[in-house]
Design a protein around this nucleic acid. Structure first.
Length: 743
RNA sequence: GCCAACGUAGCUCAGUUGGCAGAGCAGCUGAUUUGUAAUCAGCCGGUCGUGGGUUCGAAUCCCUCCGUUGGCUCCA
């Protein structure tokens, strides 16, 4: 049974169906009755709020004849979905997408419809059209939408076979829909359409009964998108919007978007002097300002101490490495496009590199080839073995052999090749395993310009990277320890809402490196550890990297957004490529298994996420300015300095605000700067050796001896207490619903 | 990389149909010597992202490049 199945021939339909309601009761209904009819029988009020129906777990139109969707025994297990059901919201939004498309087609000419699905926070519709829509056009589109909603016209469903469907779409000048019927829906005998007034759209549904149910709708943004996600294909215009059953819910959704904007790490990073990204330094290259760097140092110190106590060995490796090493690892040229260009020891290096690339793409004319040979000779490079008549592969080989004899360096895109070299730098015995090498390793990746985003996506990033080299038997225990570490790290910074995504191999694919047994063993071990850990996790078959399965930590912040942070990945590939081996207790050589893991992911991204999570107000232990001493006037500056010295000696990050002006102003500035504690000192405190402590969150705590203040604040640091004043609701922006429709 | 929007003082932003570039905050100087979220006054500060074009005249209109933002595509 499926909502998509074509309606059965009328002859085979019984005249009556048995509707089974959630309470188990059976209601006989005529076969052409609908869920809405059932609702009306129960009560008019219920009927008014029915959005759709759920039959056997599938959501269907409330206006669909029940006979079409009954099972073999003519029973329809029916649940009515009202405006209060979460899954009804998706139905509403999908219908809202139709209404928006209808409005846009009324205003603009030559609109070709693509897809209009729902997203976690709303919906969008993609259009191919000659005119450009701008956000300035939203008011007039929204006005048209309101007209459509006010008319309360019903949605009607009808089914056509493929030929009829193609003809209809053709008649409607919907060439993208025609293409989709021919390709994407090539295996469907019939397809469904929905009509609402003059608007007819190929669509799987389901839809709300009538447009009047859309009580709140708002267009949010317009952006480019590709037809069927293909970057080489047609560029479409995508209009995003959202809709709710209730105006208040829309208002609270918009408030959440505002809250997310207020927390934007790029804004807060600038405001609080945490980091800067300056085009003169380079796109995506992060400058850690002193305050941001303090946060990072604290994080690094914290993790370093943990790693040292958990049996890791610190290592350091250079920021560049020979291209050959990345050819061995496979990162070059596979990720060539997202790496910075190589650095060449010879001035002709770039020429030969470009030459080789042209050959690789088979994009080199005879004429240009002669010029390149001549140009190389200008620089004194003769390639007698290079035969213009030879195959491209043979020619590339000649160029490559020359390159091997000349220096080519790459800005390090990954730490693992270096760590493999460190493993290989000495003969290894099973007694040394597991060998855990860690480094805060800075890597450089030439991310596409459109991808760069504050600290979240940068071109130079520092991974809290480590590679564990172990035997196959040790994988399980190492994985367990890594999961444990990551949990500990996340919870230390107050992130306790997370789950693990376990990415497994696609059973049908042959693209994977490593033996079948190894994969089976590893996947089983990972699953077992996660089950024992009590963490919530979900399995994603087919999402594994080609070199091994992985577990990613998906962390939810305090306003409900999901971040992919820490990761643990098994790797059978690199030990093979670098021919790493150790001597076993059987005196034979074996290949180790490698585990990549990074609890933070990258310091940039992690810090950026923390800024947003805490809205810039770091908990005491991470704070770049924990205490600010505020002298009442010039007269108390001397005592303030002495107080600050004591806090400093006790290990706090402390400053003194010696500016003139009233203490109210100093407090205000300290509050705005999100300093955790203020220590107000005047003549009274100087006389008694006290400070008047003010908490950023609680306000004035009264006067106390300095020692008492120090003890109190030290305790807060040591216990890594998180006393953030959480703002925002618990409803998630990033995730809810999510049953995206295909067409 | 692609589509769109945007780029004015350190920051946030005004700037009308093309006609002398503005405010608040920050900063600096001075006065004030203060008890839990803004003391007062003065001053400094901009080749309006870059380069070109149209025009008697461009922050304003057009093009180029650079950068930012929202998406798309990518993400070892």
């Amino acid at each position: 049974m499926s909502a998509d199945s074509p309606s059965s021939p009328a002859s085979s339909q019984a005249a009556e169906v048995q509707v089974r309601l959630p309470d188990g009761s059976l209601k006989p209904q005529p076969a052409d009755a609908t869920a809405m009819d059932v609702a009306k029988e129960i009560s008019e009020g219920l009927a008014r709020s029915v959005v759709a129906a759920e039959v056997d777990g599938t959501i269907v139109d409330s206006f669909r004849p029940l006979g079409e969707i009954a099972d073999d025994e003519n029973v329809v297990p029916l649940r009515l979905l009202t405006t209060r059901d979460e899954s009804a919201l998706d139905v509403l939004r999908h219908s809202a997408a139709h209404v928006m498309a209808r409005a846009i087609m009324r205003i603009y000419k030559g609109v070709s419809l693509a897809f209009g699905p729902t997203t976690s926070g709303g919906f969008y519709y993609d259009f191919d059209m000659p005119e450009k829509i701008s956000e300035d056009d939203f008011p007039k589109i929204e006005a048209e939408i309101k007209k459509i909603i006010k008319a309360k016209e019903p949605f009607e469903r009808f089914v056509l076979d493929r030929d009829e469907a193609r003809k209809l779409c053709d008649d409607l000048d919907q060439d993208l829909k025609v293409e989709h019927i021919e390709t994407g829906l090539g295996d469907q005998a019939t397809v469904s359409f929905y009509r609402q007034g003059e608007f007819v759209d190929l669509c799987r549904g389901p839809h709300i009964p009538h447009a009047g149910m859309i009580k709140a709708i708002k267009l949010l943004s317009v952006a480019g998108a590709y037809w069927k996600g293909d970057a080489s294909g047609r560029q479409l215009q995508r209009v995003y919007g959202t809709a709710f059953f209730d105006k208040k819910e829309l208002a609270s959704y918009l408030e959440q978007i505002e809250e997310a904007k207020r927390r934007d790490h790029r804004v807060l990073g600038k405001q609080h002097g945490l980091f800067a990204i300056n085009p003169e330094v380079g796109q995506g290259l992060c400058l850690w300002l002193p305050k941001g760097a303090r946060v990072r140092v604290t994080l690094e110190d914290f993790l370093r101490r943990e790693l040292l106590s958990r049996g890791y060995d610190p290592v350091y490796s250079p920021h560049i490495g020979r291209v050959e090493m990345y050819e061995t690892s496979g990162h070059f040229p596979y990720y060539r496009d997202s790496q910075f260009a190589p650095l060449f020891g010879s001035e002709v290096g770039g020429l030969l590199d470009a030459w080789s690339t042209r050959l690789d793409k088979d994009d080199l004319s005879k004429d240009d080839e002669d010029k390149l040979i001549a140009a190389a000779e200008v620089f004194g490079v003769k390639l007698p073995e290079y035969k213009p008549s030879a195959s491209n592969d043979a020619k590339k080989d000649v160029l490559h052999r020359w390159q091997l004899n000349h220096e080519r360096y790459l800005l390090k895109p990954m730490n693992c090749p270096h760590h493999c070299q460190i493993f290989g730098a000495q003969p290894r015995s099973y007694r040394q395993l597991p060998l855990r090498l860690f480094e805060f390793g800075t890597v450089y990746r030439h991310e596409q310009t459109g991808e760069l985003n504050g600290m979240m996506r940068v071109r130079g990033l520092t991974q809290d990277d480590a590679h564990i080299f172990c035997t196959a038997d040790q994988v399980e225990e190492e994985f367990r320890a890594t999961i444990e570490l990551t949990k500990f790290v996340l919870e230390s910074v107050g992130l306790d809402d997370y789950r693990v995504q376990l990415s497994l191999r696609d059973p049908d694919s042959s693209k994977y490196v490593g033996s079948e047994e190894n994969w089976d063993h590893a996947e089983g071990a990972l699953r077992g550890v996660l089950e024992q850990s009590g963490l919530s996790f979900n399995e994603e078959p087919g999402e594994a990297a080609f070199y091994g399965p992985k577990a990613d930590f998906m962390v939810r912040d305090c306003i409900g957004r999901s971040w992919q942070l820490g990761t643990v990945q098994l790797d059978y590939n690199l030990p093979e490529r670098f021919k790493l081996e150790y001597k076993g207790n059987d005196n034979a050589t074996h290949r180790p298994v490698m585990i990549h893991r990074a609890p933070f992911g990258s310091l940039e991204r992690f810090t950026g996420m923390l800024i947003e999570h805490f809205a810039g107000a770091f908990p005491m232990w991470l704070s770049p300015e924990q205490i600010r001493v505020l002298p009442l006037s010039d007269k108390s500056v001397e005592y303030a300095t002495a107080v600050a010295k004591q806090f400093d000696e006790a290990g706090f990050k402390v400053t003194v605000d010696a500016s003139d002006g009233k203490v109210q102003a100093k407090i205000r500035n300290a509050q705005i700067d999100l300093v955790n504690y203020m220590a107000v000192v005047g003549p009274k405190e100087a006389e008694s050796g006290q400070v008047a402590l003010r908490d950023r969150i609680e306000g004035d705590l009264g006067s106390m001896p300095i020692k008492e203040a120090i003890a109190r604040l030290q305790k807060e640091v040591e216990t890594r207490q998180v006393r953030q004043a959480v703002k925002g609701s618990t409803v998630s922006i990033a995730e809810s619903g999510g049953a995206a429709t295909d067409y």
